[in-house]
Design a protein around this nucleic acid. Structure first.
Lengths: 253, 253
DNA sequence: CGATAGGCAATTGCATGCACTTTTCCGGGC
DNA sequence: GCCCGGAAAAGTGCATGCAATTGCCTATCG
């Protein structure tokens, strides 16, 4: 192995690791839309070179999570209201497809897994918003994964993340109460194998989430970009062995 | 710019240029599934360094057009039959969404553009298969573009390309006759603003295309990889100024 | 004759360096 | 006081070099 002696948790997929960390930071709203992501700062944070950071940014840009303009610093995407609405429309259709494929076809174990996840969401209700938002999103991703269709999984995940982003721009604080109940209803209908009903439920559920994103021109933001990233980098590999970490510059997106 | 002094046609977006060229080579089946794409050979062909070629491969992999495994040469994707079926299922849903949004909302000019495209398909009927396949695919992409929804555009394009790939693996030679007629029917229904009918038509059309991909375990293939790529590279920039082009190695996927 | 281990060529993984572009900051003019 | 212009700083675009891995080819052994 190279000199760096990475700990084995990172199975060599540095780019993937960075992507996952950034995605998570974004859906937990630690990185708000518009936040700047300079290649070299990112590289320092994760203990890799700009080349790798750049590659990761490329992937995230392909997913629509960040915006990449030539010769400009990458920023977390700031979807327009119209784009947000489009994303939700497509997402609704895709997730209806997911539950259509799943209705009546889930094993007892899978249903239990879903229930367990919703229990988790329930438990996190009093915790920080960031966590409950992430969990709510992951419920939908979990459903998609049960289809075993790589394409569906990828698209639903992407759309879910983008919609998360949207919510952080246009929606009010977040109240997950009813969302959690709706998740339970969906599980019940899936178990019952009631295809039409589960599609309806999912459609309504997503529509109601989307409708929370109706008004509000979005808040301006300013935050300590790289400081906020630290825990995500730390989680990715256990410590950042970056060779020469001076105090990271403060950026205020 | 560096020493290379590219001609101005390439607006600096080298990665995008390579992606487009490769995508096109793939959908025209000049690059068959399984064909190898070594970074440096690619770089030589397009007159860029491995860094850029690598980045392009990363993007294409994100789109599912090629497969990228660690420490291994990138290859054009070889979707399993199941993946292919999934892709078609999702695609059908997405394109129904497209025409739903479009029905009755197209301008006269847009309808004319669609007709013109189908005329092109018609004219290409006697030409090489590669061209008529590409045109058929582009009809669907064109429709998607008219929605002005970046997400829809991206997903439909991706899916259309992937399905193309599929056809080259599992389908018989290609007879575009009826497909062209179906395209015309779709246009007519769009113009009439008959939402339900156009969704039905599009669904049937895609289903019938998919059904052509039912049997056949796929043909083995062998081809002169980089030789076949030359025209695509040439089209991308007018000539390849690569510094030291020895005879490119022949690879036989 | 077939299977196998070892070595070499091909290829990827990644960091670094240099050129170019954009942004920022500062001083002078209006 | 505000706007403009120019230079320094920050950042990206890209090529190249080196280490590590893989894959192939061959010589050797059963």
């Amino acid at each position: 192995m190279a000199r760096g002696k990475d700990n084995a948790l990172d199975a060599g997929d540095k780019v993937g690791t960075i992507c996952r960390a950034l995605r998570r930071a974004i859906i937990e709203q630690a990185l708000e839309p518009g936040a700047k992501l300079p290649e070299d700062t990112l590289g320092e944070r994760f203990g890799v070179s700009r080349t790798i950071a750049r590659h990761a940014l490329g992937q995230l840009a392909a997913e629509g999570l960040i915006e990449l303009r030539r010769n400009r610093i990458a920023v977390v995407a700031t979807p327009s209201w119209q784009e947000a609405r489009d994303a939700f429309d497509v997402r609704i259709e895709m997730e209806r497809l997911v539950v259509r494929q799943l209705a009546g076809r889930l094993s007892r174990a899978q249903l239990a897994e879903l229930e367990a996840h919703v229990d988790l969401e329930d438990a996190a209700r009093d915790g920080p918003d960031a966590v409950s938002i992430r969990l709510a999103t992951e419920f939908h991703v979990l459903l998609a994964q049960m289809t075993n269709s790589p394409i569906l999984i990828r698209y639903v995940s992407e759309l879910a993340y983008r919609c998360c982003l949207t919510l952080s721009l246009y929606s009010r604080p977040h109240s997950s109460e009813c969302a959690i109940n709706e998740h339970r209803l969906v599980i019940a209908a899936l178990a019952a194998g009631d295809t039409d009903r589960v599609m309806e439920l999912m459609g309504h559920h997503l529509e109601s989430v989307a409708s929370r994103a109706l008004v509000g021109p979005g808040k301006p933001h300013g935050l300590d970009l790289m400081g906020v990233l630290a825990p995500y980098a730390a989680e990715a590999r256990d410590a950042v062995p970056a060779r020469r970490v001076g105090r990271p510059r403060l950026r205020t997106g």
